[in-house]
Simulated assay, not measured.
Amino acid sequence: MSEKDKKIRVAISIGDYNGIGIEIILKTLVDKDITEFFTPVIFGSTKLLSHQKDKLKLDRINFQGIQDVNQIIDGKINIVNLWKDQIDVQFGKVTKQAGEYAYQSLKAAAQSVVDGFTDVLVTAPINKDNIQSEEFHFPGHTEYLGEVWGGEPLMFLVAEKIKVGLVSQHIPIAKVAQSITKKNVYNKIQQIYKSLVEDYTIEKPKIAVLGLNPHAGDNGLLGTEEQEIINPAIERCKTENKLVYGPYSADSFFNPSNLDVFDAVLAMYHDQGLIPFKTIAFDEGVNYTAGLKYVRTSPDHGVAYDIAGKGIANNESFKEAIFLAMELYKNRLDYAELTKDILQHIPLKLEKGENRE
């Protein structure tokens, strides 16, 4: 069986178990035919998943408990038992223990992809505060995976209607302006372009770049970053024959006519890009970490402590994250196949008497 035709193994980290992470995982896997599409590999414990399964009355789900990733069974819902402890679940509460187990799950799931036991990673939401420790000292999944997988991660929020990348990610607003440099803007445009070509098979993508200041600076009246930093980065991309345009005023850009024209948008900071993205595509939106060797996706929402344990969490974004991860994985294989050098040097067999020179 070829790499492309095999059943994809999806590593799933559980996130903060006091939030909605396990609920959206279980709701996604409740369909008895789901394992026809992929093999789920959840990193946590059978006890913990069974406890929440019972609470949510999702009796139709059957787990395959394993002790090691080399025991994964295709066509089953595998749970890698990372611990044997009985977990004290406190829905809606922020606890240090939940953060510690969230990190253990993430670490093991990410490593399973590196080791080749699984193919892609889908992460349930973490609490960025209680997960912090001596080992995990990152603003979020994106930065952590950039460290352990290697590469320059791009936080790429994607849906059918809209795709948004960010120059600056999880940093305070007070530090945003200093992070907007010609190098950073140029590099993020390149990352978006590369992802659209290799991950989304768009031959000639068109990218819009937003300004930093109100009204994109109003020709320097409201700030000079557009003139001195953003526009030069855009012009550099144009000299490379890339379809990159802007800078556009963020307050008026996100309308259907613009979104229909462009394949992706580069925003300067977190809320500038994520507020319109989540307004337009909240239920089906996916957070994709582009720019890394392996594929990682997640739902575009957080732990939602306020509804945890109530059985009302919407799992649509998590389901989209799983199927997008598989699609991107296959697209990457296709791209690699199409672009590899298939022309091999074949020495000519010369006839007797021909000059070899």
Rank of each mutant, 00 (worst) to 15 (best):
F37T: 12
S168C: 12
G146V: 11
T201F: 15
V265D: 04
N62V: 13
E337V: 07
Q71D: 12
G150A: 09
K4L: 14
A313E: 01
N78Y: 10
T181W: 11
N315P: 13
V244A: 07
V303T: 15
T224C: 06
V158N: 01
K161Y: 07
V94D: 04
T142G: 07
L343K: 14
Q169E: 12
E235W: 03
I22W: 01
L338G: 14
S179Y: 11
G302L: 11
K76P: 06
Q178L: 10
T181L: 07
M268F: 10
N331E: 04
E100I: 13
K310E: 01
I25E: 02
Q169N: 14
G151F: 03
E327K: 15
K204M: 09
L259D: 07
G223W: 09
I73D: 11
E357Y: 09
L338A: 15
T239N: 10
V167Q: 05
V164E: 03
I77F: 06
I12M: 12
F91I: 02
H270E: 08
E160W: 03
L348W: 05
W149S: 05
D85Q: 14
E228R: 13
Q67V: 11
G19R: 10
V69G: 00
I207M: 04
I14R: 01
D306I: 09
Y144D: 02
I192M: 12
S257H: 10
R60Y: 01
I189C: 04
Q86G: 11
E327Y: 11
I229C: 07
F138A: 12
K242V: 00
E351Q: 14
Q52W: 02
I126D: 00
T181V: 10
T46A: 08
F254K: 07
L58F: 02
A304K: 00
L343F: 11
T35H: 06
A174H: 12
T339I: 12
I230V: 09
K175W: 12
E135A: 12
G273M: 02
S257C: 04
K188G: 08
Y245G: 06
T224M: 13
I20N: 00
I312T: 12
H301T: 09
I20C: 02
D16I: 13
T118G: 04
L106E: 01
H170A: 11
N187E: 15
K188R: 15
A177D: 08
Y186F: 15
I87Y: 06
L259K: 03
P139Y: 06
A233R: 05
F91E: 14
V148K: 04
G291L: 02
I12R: 08
D88V: 14
L221V: 15
V185N: 03
V41M: 02
H215R: 03
W149D: 01
D68L: 04
N231W: 05
T39F: 01
L350Y: 12
D54W: 02
F38H: 08
Y200E: 11
F38T: 01
F277M: 11
L106T: 04
A208Q: 03
A124L: 04
E134R: 12
P256C: 10
I346W: 01
Q64N: 13
V209R: 09
D300T: 08
V10N: 10
N314W: 00
N81C: 05
K175P: 07
Q111A: 13
V286S: 07
I20L: 00
I126E: 06
